[in-house]
Amino acid sequence: MESEIEKKAAAMAEEEVAGKKVAADGDVSLKELSKKLNDFAKERDWEQYHSPRNLLLAMIAEVGELSELFMWKGEVRKGLADWDEAEKEHLGEELSDVLLYLVRLSDICGVDLGDAATRKIVKNAVKYPAPSKEGGA
């Protein structure tokens, strides 16, 4: 159960985010996320803690939390039809934690994550070509 202090802190954080007009529609670029994370860390004087090693370890911890959501569930169907809304919301939060640490880590390391991912897809297409459709049924 949330205490009054936790509720007030959460409300203040929501107002802060709302005041900065954070897009809630999911249409945000990696560069925008990077900027938001950088601003967030600066406002809290957290930059001193954001070394590559610390960010990597934090991301690994979040991957562990993400893994816990799937533990003991067996194979999970695409679309998560058997999950309730609270489970799906929690999944979204944990996926976001992993993504945010990954974006912050790439930024601190000076890696353009969008560019690197695009180049990796191209490399993978060369390494693993799609099967030929000629002669197929």
Rank of each mutant, 00 (worst) to 15 (best):
M1W: 12
E6P: 00
K7R: 14
A11T: 07
A11P: 01
E15Y: 08
E16A: 15
A18K: 15
K20P: 01
A23S: 14
A23D: 13
G26Q: 09
V28Q: 14
V28R: 14
L30P: 00
L30G: 03
S34F: 04
S34T: 13
K36L: 15
D39W: 07
F40W: 11
W46P: 00
Y49W: 15
R53M: 07
L57A: 07
A58T: 04
M59K: 10
I60W: 05
E62V: 03
G64K: 05
S67T: 12
E68A: 10
L69Y: 05
M71V: 03
K78V: 07
K78G: 08
G79H: 09
G79T: 12
L80V: 08
D82I: 05
D82W: 02
D84W: 03
E85F: 02
E85K: 10
E87H: 06
K88Q: 13
E89F: 05
E89Q: 10
E89D: 09
L91Y: 03
L95T: 02
V98H: 04
L99A: 13
L99Y: 00
L100C: 15
Y101C: 07
Y101N: 04
L102V: 02
I108V: 15
C109D: 09
A117C: 08
R119D: 09
K123T: 03
K127E: 12
P131G: 06
